[in-house]
Design a protein around this nucleic acid. Sequence first.
RNA 1: GGGCGGUUAGCUCAGCCGGUCAGAGCGUCUCGCUUACACCGAGAAGGUCGGGGGUUCGAGCCCCUCACCGCCCACCA
Length: 890
Amino acid sequence: MTERPNLPSRYAAAEVEPAIYERWLASGAFAPSAEPRPGAERFVITMPPPNVTGSLHVGHALFVTLEDLLTRYHRMRGDDTLWLPGVDHASIAAQFVLDKIIAEEGETRASLGRDRYLERMWRFMDETRDVIGLQMRRLGASADWTRNRFTMDPMSARAVRTAFKRLHDGGLVYRGEALVNWCPRCRTTISDLEKVPREETGTLWTIRYHLARPDGTPDAERWIAVATTRPETVLGDVAVAVNPDDERYRDLVGREAILPFLGRRLPIIADPVVERDFGTGAVKITPAHDPDDYETGRRHGLPAISVLDEEARINDQGGPFAGLDRYEARERIVEQLRAMGDLEGERPHPMVVGHCDRCGTVIEPRLSVQWFVRTKPLAERALASVRGGRTKIVPEHFTKVYAHWMENIRDWAVGRQLWWGHRIPAWYCPDGHITVTDAEAGPDACAACGRPAAELTQETDIFDTWFSSGLWPFSTLGWPDDTADMRRFYPTSVMETGYDIIFFWVARMMMLGLFLTDAEPFHTVYLHGLVRANGGVKMSKTKGNTADPLEVIEEIGADALRFALTVGTTPGADQRLTETKLDGARNFTNKLWNAARFVLGARPEPLTMPEGAPSLAERWIHSRLSEATERATRQLDELDLSVYAASVHDFAWGDFCDWYLEMAKVDLRRPGATPGEQARAWLSAADALAGLLRLLHPIVPFVTEEIWAALMASHPHAASQPPLLISAAWPTPGARDLLAEADLHVVTELIRGVRNLRTESGSPASAWLGLTVVPAEPAARAAIERGIDYLAALARVRPIEVREPGVDDGRPELVASTSEAAAWLGSVGGETADARTRLAANEAHLRRGIERLRALLAGEFAQRAPAAVIERERARLSELEAQLRLLSGG
RNA sequence: GGGCGGUUAGCUCAGCCGGUCAGAGCGUCUCGCUUACACCGAGAAGGUCGGGGGUUCGAGCCCCUCACCGCCCACCA
């Protein structure tokens, strides 16, 4: 080592991070070892696979950060660690994107047809499949890319077929007619979860339906008025309902009204669901277009007449309005009713309208035949797992949300009338039999009548994307086969995701996982919050307030972004990512860099064999590092990720940089020190730095790795260390050195006191002042003498006189007092009066504290409080008393 | 209409399933270019922990209640 290796003066995070990532990748550190280490604990993280069409947004950045943090920690612990990455095919979202792309090419879904559309989709996938993964790498994601998975790959397809087959065999799927949510733009069914309610002001129209005369013609003089917000649905009306107790209409029940435009005869029925006070108290019944009416219709044996097609245009049931868009039809109908004199009223009406989560279009209830998963039995088990603590939700209060949903769950319409996705493996035979199979090639013959496969037709619907996502924890490991990965990594450990998909995804994984694998798919659900923009508003591209993680990384590095996203957050609670916070994190990485530069630059040349006993500062930092290690370990084990980040930050900045490195300067530059002693001092600093780097690596992996490389290059014992920090062992806390900590506590308190006084007395910061110290007792005196060089350097005082208490010294410029010692500066200037005032104030403050504690200890507290608590207060009291004695010269 | 979360220093947020003058970062003020770092160092000011009531020897933490803010769930045309 002829050339002293050191780091560049500036840390160019964005420039060096990719290279560091390549080193990790090349080292094979991300993948679990071929065989698990005997006795190793298992740690497997389940991540939410991002949409294949997506590009990295700040929400991804958050989950990648948290999951990578945990993965790195457990890997360093030596656990059998797996973080399996992948992407979700996101059928509806992907089609939404592709539809827009092909539109630019002058094509539509219809013009291409299913086969060519899917071909186009797969080409699109080639472009997008790796994008998100590459971006995740920029954040430092140490996932096992050799196991990268896609929910449309053959393994996943097989899992989907098998899952459906087993659900079917278990009587948990059925096909039936129901009113489902239909998006006229996406032209598919969507689940209740994908329907987002929005408050809107609509219009409530009151319409007259004339009563039917005995001959079936409308009675111009008599009518029943109904209220509706969707006049276009009158075309599908089959009845008018009133409350059975409503006297106003009692005599009308059993009679008939005539539907305008179409002349259909509508029985007037009585049903208790009708609220007498709403509107006119009479309701038009449209079973094919309203969930309530659908139920009412069933109860009364009424037909359901669909009047809208898949794009929400009036179909051929709509008479004169056929072919019109639903809103156009609405207008025309209102107009014509008005012209006919049958529009009795219209007024603004606040209401909640369901929109498509994907495209924002207003959802129509639509009558159709669908595949459903019977969720009740699945939900019961999924709920029991959480209630029984076999799966724990963090934060705990989301358990209630989860439970409420599970208790009120409705059957899951799993079919989608889309093309991009897993096609439901059900085949229909001309005789109406249904055959469900998990065979890739489909069934050989109808399971019921044996008709050959050639005569069967496959269901055209595909699965809801979340059906395959719900299999993720095990489909990615090879299920349904009994693979080595399945045995080794399932069930997984922590499932980490945002609370916004607790129903979509977490609940489904629990239900499907328990049914299909007979195990909870993970023991912990860690829910992070949403990242919001400044002002607490949701980030959205249209508002232009999105923080682009890639831009942030380019500017300040991935470490800083990771740190900012982790610190100061609580699981399940939203956070704001502000410029200030990012700056703070950037400053922190910079601080680490410079601390390392100091250590590396301080290496004695040549570095000889160390000799001599460790200095007080060396013992102190060693002890503090032990404590920090213990704390960090506990916090990470308890998933207190933000607290971990804050506490290692504080240790690094406060204990290590502010105190230890300043004291290390004293040791390193101690006059008369032998080369061996200098070597010892430096090695202590280098080792403390190494320990610190290990603690920090999970949260700021890049900068710590880069520093590690430089440190190892200049450390004589580097050969015994792994070349890459990512593969280094998580430290085990050593023994605390409480004596060193106690000694330095006395000294640092004194330093603080002196600094305080220097500022208050306005003495020049650069001036060396004489200091007189009066220790309270021999122990304090010994401590001060042991740390006197640090005291001198850090408080900038020279010379220091240590005096016995009780000597009359007139101490006009008493400056500082701690419980261990009193001290004053030699020549502060002519500020005697100020000093006396200060002394008096100090004394008064102490007396108040003492009184308060004496009163406390004299009261009921002393009888009732736990002994430890009382003892602590007693100790505090005697500290204050000692301090007062010192102050008053006792 | 139900349910949940929040309300702590000017701002953004911590606060260990009650322990006794409440913490951090940023901002503000005062000093300081002391050869790791001005993306820095030293010091300081700043809070009736949303309001009210209660339980307790003791409450930011528990209970009741009110007020705002936010979110989730929900089939009133």
